[in-house]
Amino acid sequence: MAPAVQLRTAVALAGRFPALAGVDLSVAFGEVVVVVGPNGAGKTSLLRACAGLMPVTSGEAVVLGCDLRVDQAAVRHQVGLLGHAAPLYDELTAAENVRFAVRALGLPAATAKPALERLGLVGRLARTPVGRLSAGQRRRVALAALVARAPELWLLDEPHAGLDAAGRRLLAELINEAVAAGTCVLLSSHEPDLTVPLADRVVTMAGGRMAAEQRGGRRAPLAALGAEDTHVA
């Protein structure tokens, strides 16, 4: 089976600046890959390129069977990107935001309800305009939209930001459930304590390239991580 994400020496430009400077990465379905690295390493750019929001100018980039160099827009409706800024409308309620997200895909509005309930967005909370919710609650609404749309590839950029302990546990459960169903998860984080245990692999980015790769907590005990570092670039 072809990998969900296949990048070979992929270069993506942010203006004139090469945000990705020759990235090699392959991610299989049902795999969780955590991307770590300092600010400016290219983590967010990697996720945006995989979502078809940043043009790949050279190299190979195939995501969910779509060649991003030929048609980057083709992959967009198949991925779920949870970025720094949530794709939410402040004036709409939590339930309305999630319903809009699922109806945009042509799914029935009722698809939103189980996802809202899974994220604890029920009752008055579901009927509250998103602009009046806390950062953590907004994050939950964005996650509910992601779960309801059930994309084959989750692209999570600092997904723990704003979430409390219960929210972080719930996020871990959602990732595990999605992966068990064959979903591929690519996750960038500055919080390895929270994300490495969820990962099959942990890749380190620096200067827009992959600098190192190691096994994640799903494949190896955390204590063994340091011994399994493998430098790839």
Partner: peptide
């Protein structure tokens, strides 16, 4: 202005609409 934020602008592009 409704889609002036990065999140909503990207969200609409990713929405499938």
């Amino acid at each position: 202005a409704i889609e002036s934020g990065e999140g909503t602008r990207d969200g609409l592009r990713l929405s499938g609409i």
